[in-house]
Structure formats: C-alpha cells, structure tokens
C-alpha cells in the first residue's frame, strides 16, 4: 500500500501555490494535514501528478475573529482550533464537535479546511459549517470568492471548489447571543465517522438543525422557535424520511432514521436548555 509517483512542491507563498495549481489544475492535489488525502494516496485511490504542500505556509496558519466570524486559515489544524482559547465562548458548537473528529493524533495534523474540502457526508466540520451558515473562501491565481456553506458542499465528496482554487480559509459565525447549541453523534467506536451526527442551534427566532452522516451531505432544516413535543417529533420524523438514508455494512437506513428522530430530539432539547 504505497503511493503512486508524484511531484512534490512546498511553495513558499500562497501566490506560488496558486500559480502551481493554476498550471496543474485537476492533476494537482493540495496537501494540508493529509489525514484524508494520504490514506487515499497510499491506497492509490488518488494518483495526482503533483502534490502542493501548503501545510507550512505561515500566511495560512491562523485562527482569528473577523467580522463576526471565526476565520480559520487553510493550514490551521483541528488541534489548534480545539486549543484556541476563545473557542468555548465564541463557538460552543465547535468545542463540542471537535473531540469527535478522529483522534488526538489525527487532529494534531488534520486541518479544518481540509475536512471541508473532502466533503465527507459524515464529517463533523462540514456539518457545523452548514448549521452555522458559515462560508468558505476560495482563492485562485486570478480571483477570490466567498461561497456560503449551502452552496459549497454539493454532494458526496463534491464541492463548488474549482480545480484551480484552494480553500484559503473557512469562516464560522461566532455564537449568537441568546442562542443555545447542541451536538450529538453516534459512531460505532470512539472517533469513527458518524452513523448520524446532529447539530442544533436554538435561537430566538427559530430552531435550526443539521444532520450529517445520513444524506449525501449535511442537511439543514429550520423549525419554529417554540417547537416541542409532538410537533417536534413530527418534524424530526419527516426530516428523517427526507434524508433518503441508505443501508451500508455498518447500519441500516432505518437505524439512521431512528437516530435522527431520537438523537435529534435530545439534541434540540439540549440546545434549548443551554440557551442563555
């Protein structure tokens, strides 16, 4: 299980990285933390002509507050975000979700933007981005554009990123005053991909829920602020059916729907209870 041959370049600037990418396009892959890409290289599921390693570009290695967002550069690791001192206050949802991503050892290297780029339907960070209505900054040699979460992840492993773009940053809105957040996931073992993951924001004007691991991308739905009891169960039940769950070797579609109903309800209640 060894990678096929490729060229390797560790550019010294973002500009240089984008120039190489502009030239190589589809034949290039961006290497950041490598926690998803490297296994695929080892298994030869991916055979790029060139790897562009942005993991050590200082210009991309940052976490900062900016315009009501937490902006996370492409080289910032999940571990760095986990240890960001303001995390619990500014992004309680991320603080809850991060420990579920892989393991200590993989978060040490895996990046926040890399997780978004791969667009795994079960991954936690795309789920959080979708729930919070965050955005992704896409940069190419000739342009920069900002794409909303809802327009970014298009389906199973596919995103709106063009071949000449890198995700230079992700922006997660900071916690809304008065809103409560909840996160729950069911994985077979600690650190596994979620059979279903649920993120909830209970705000003043509504309850917003996002489900990962069931459909081909995180699915978001808005419920009325006061939803509870049978109405909540009804809404979750319809949501569960709408996700078009499929069987796989680890769980049946029906099981995933039950998780949406049951964990969904618990998570909504949890989010409501921590509304301040």
């Amino acid at each position: 299980m060894k990678p096929a041959p490729f060229d390797y370049i560790a550019p010294e600037s973002v500009e240089e990285a984008l120039a190489v990418l502009a030239e190589a396009g589809e034949d290039a892959r961006i290497l950041a933390g490598g926690q998803t890409l490297s296994p695929m290289l080892n298994m030869r599921l991916v055979e790029p002509a060139v790897l562009i390693d942005i993991s050590r570009l200082p210009a991309l290695d940052y976490i900062r507050r900016k315009n009501g967002h937490i902006e996370i550069g492409a080289a910032a690791t999940q571990n760095a975000l986990e240890n960001w001192p303001e995390l619990a206050a500014q992004a309680p949802l991320l603080a809850q979700a991060l420990p579920h991503i892989g393991h200590f050892q993989t978060r040490n290297r895996g990046t926040v933007c890399g997780s978004l780029a791969f667009a795994d339907p079960s991954a936690e960070l795309p789920l959080c981005l979708a729930l919070l209505g965050g955005e992704v900054v896409l940069q190419s040699a000739s342009r920069q554009r900002v794409v909303k979460a809802a327009d970014f992840q298009l389906g199973m492993l596919s995103t709106a990123r063009e071949a000449d773009e890198i995700i230079s940053a992700a922006r997660f809105p900071v916690a809304e005053a008065g809103a409560g957040y909840g996160f729950a996931e069911m994985a077979l073992r600690h650190g596994d991909f979620a059979l279903a993951a649920i993120a909830v924001k209970a705000g003043k004007t509504g309850v917003r829920i996002a489900i990962g691991g069931v459909a081909d991308r995180p699915m978001v739905r808005n419920f009325p602020a006061g939803i509870e009891g049978a109405a909540l169960d009804d809404a979750l039940n319809d949501l569960a059916w709408d996700l078009a769950a499929a069987d796989d070797p680890h769980a049946t579609a029906r099981y995933r729907r039950e998780l949406v109903r049951r964990l969904g309800r618990k998570t909504v209640e949890e989010a409501k209870s921590c509304r301040v």
Binding site: Y8, A10, G34, Q35, S38, P39, N42, L51, D53, S55, N79, F104, Q105, T106, N108, R109
Partner: peptide
C-alpha cells in the same frame, strides 16, 4: 507533535 508517520512524507 504526535503524528502518523504513514500519513507523512519523508520530504515533509
């Protein structure tokens, strides 16, 4: 920092 050396290239 503890990392997987199977997911890291020697050049890195």
């Amino acid at each position: 920092v503890a990392i997987r050396s199977c997911l890291t290239l020697a050049v890195q």
